[in-house]
C-alpha cells in the first residue's frame, strides 16, 4: 500500500430539504461536514447504523447525487467540476456495487447485455465481446452457460457476481462497496468477500467498504471510519479500533455486537447504550451523541467536538480526548 490518497473528501455536506405544505420545513443533515482520505490500494471501511449517512457519502462522492457543499478529489481532480471526457473517465474509473442484487440488474436484459452495455458505451476495446464477457464471468466464478440468461434465473450470490463482472469490465481503480453482502446468505457472504479481497490483491483496487456489520468491516478494511448521525466520530486502523475503541459511541457499538462465542458472551460485561438515535432533522446541539453518552459533560451539550488526531493515524471527535480546549 502506497501512502498516496486516491480519494480526498473535504468538508462534504449533503442536506435534504424536508418539504412542508408550502415551505421547506427543515433539512435532514444526512452528511454534515465529513472529511477523509482513502489511500491507493487500501480498503476504507465506513460503518454506522441505518440513517447515519454512510450511503449518502458514497453516492455523493460518485456524483450520483449532488452535494450541498464540500469537495471531492479523485486522483487530484475535483470530481464535482468534471465535464465531458473527464467525467466519462471518472464514470469508468470509479464504480459502485450495490447492496440489493435483486434490484441492481435490469430484469429485461441478459447477462451478456448487462455486462456489455457500459463497455459499448465507453467504447472500451475488448476484442470478441462474447469471449470477453465469458472471461469476466469466469473471473467471478461463473461460466459460458450463464451468458444469455436473465437475472431472475440466478440466486442472490450469483447476481452479485454478475454485478461484479460488470464493474470489472470497466477496468476501474476505485470501487464503492455498498453493503455488498448484507442481502446474501451467510454461507455465500464469505465467497463474495474473499473474491473481493483476492481481486484487490491482484489488481490493486481501492475500496470504500460500507456496512453496518462491524465484523464484516473489520475483516475487509485496513482503516475504518465510524459515522453517527451524519458525522464521522472516529477514524482508526482496523485492528486498533477493535482493540481500543476511543469514542463512546464506538465502544457502545462494539459492546452491542453479538459475538459468535457463547463462552465469551456470557462473561463479557454488558455495557448498554440507552435510547435511540435522534432524528437527523434537528440533531442535538453540541456533540450529537451526548444524549446517549455515558460520559456526557457540560461542554458536550454546547460545543461540537472537532475530529482531532490523538495519535498517528487515529482521529476521534470527542471532548474526552480533545483536552476540552475547543
Amino acid at each position: 500500500m502506497t501512502q498516496q490518497p486516491i480519494i480526498k473528501v473535504q468538508n462534504l455536506k449533503k442536506y435534504f430539504p424536508v418539504k412542508g405544505i408550502f415551505f421547506t420545513k427543515g433539512y435532514v443533515k444526512a452528511v454534515d461536514d465529513v472529511s477523509f482520505e482513502i489511500m491507493r490500494g487500501e480498503t476504507f471501511g465506513l460503518v454506522g447504523e441505518s440513517g447515519c449517512g454512510k450511503t449518502t457519502v458514497a453516492r455523493t462522492i460518485l456524483r450520483l447525487i449532488k452535494a450541498t457543499s464540500g469537495r471531492v478529489f479523485f486522483e487530484g481532480k475535483d470530481v464535482f467540476k468534471l465535464k465531458g471526457d473527464e467525467l466519462l473517465w471518472f464514470r469508468r474509473k470509479a464504480q459502485i456495487m450495490f447492496q440489493d442484487p435483486y434490484s441492481s440488474l435490469n430484469p429485461r436484459m441478459t447477462v451478456f447485455e448487462i455486462i456489455m452495455e457500459p463497455v459499448r458505451f465507453h467504447k472500451i476495446e475488448v476484442g470478441d465481446p462474447e469471449d470477453f464477457v465469458v472471461g469476466l464471468l469466469e473471473t467471478v466464478g461463473m461460466n459460458r452457460d450463464h451468458l444469455y440468461r436473465f437475472p431472475h434465473e440466478f440466486s442472490g450470490g450469483q447476481r452479485q457476481r454478475i454485478a461484479l463482472a460488470r464493474i470489472l469490465a470497466m477496468k476501474p481503480e476505485f470501487i464503492v462497496l455498498d453493503e455488498p453482502t448484507s442481502a446474501l446468505d451467510v454461507s455465500v457472504h464469505a465467497q463474495i468477500l474473499n473474491m473481493l479481497r483476492d481481486l484487490q490483491r491482484e489488481r490493486g483496487f481501492t475500496y470504500l467498504f460500507i456496512s453496518h456489520d462491524l465484523a464484516v468491516v473489520k475483516y475487509m478494511s485496513h482503516r475504518i471510519a465510524v459515522m453517527y448521525l451524519g458525522k464521522i466520530v472516529e477514524i482508526a486502523p482496523s485492528d486498533k479500533l477493535f482493540e481500543e475503541p476511543l469514542h463512546p459511541y464506538t465502544q457502545a457499538l462494539l459492546a452491542a455486537l453479538p459475538i459468535p462465542d457463547p463462552e465469551y458472551t456470557r462473561k463479557k460485561p454488558k455495557i448498554e447504550i440507552r435510547g435511540e438515535p435522534p432524528s437527523p432533522i434537528n440533531p442535538p446541539p453540541g456533540c450529537r451523541f451526548h444524549p446517549r453518552c455515558p460520559h456526557a459533560m457540560k461542554i458536550c451539550k454546547e460545543k461540537e467536538p472537532p475530529l482531532t488526531q490523538v495519535e498517528p493515524g487515529r482521529f476521534v471527535a470527542c471532548w474526552l480526548y480533545t483536552g476540552r480546549k475547543g
Partner: peptide
C-alpha cells in the same frame, strides 16, 4: 462451515472459509 463463514471480530481472521455452491 457456517461458523467459519461468520467473522468473529475478536479474532484476527486471515481468510474466511466459505461453503462452496449455493443452497
Amino acid at each position: 462451515g457456517l461458523l467459519k463463514a461468520v467473522p468473529n471480530p475478536l479474532i484476527k481472521v486471515e481468510k474466511l472459509e466459505s461453503i462452496p455452491g449455493t443452497v
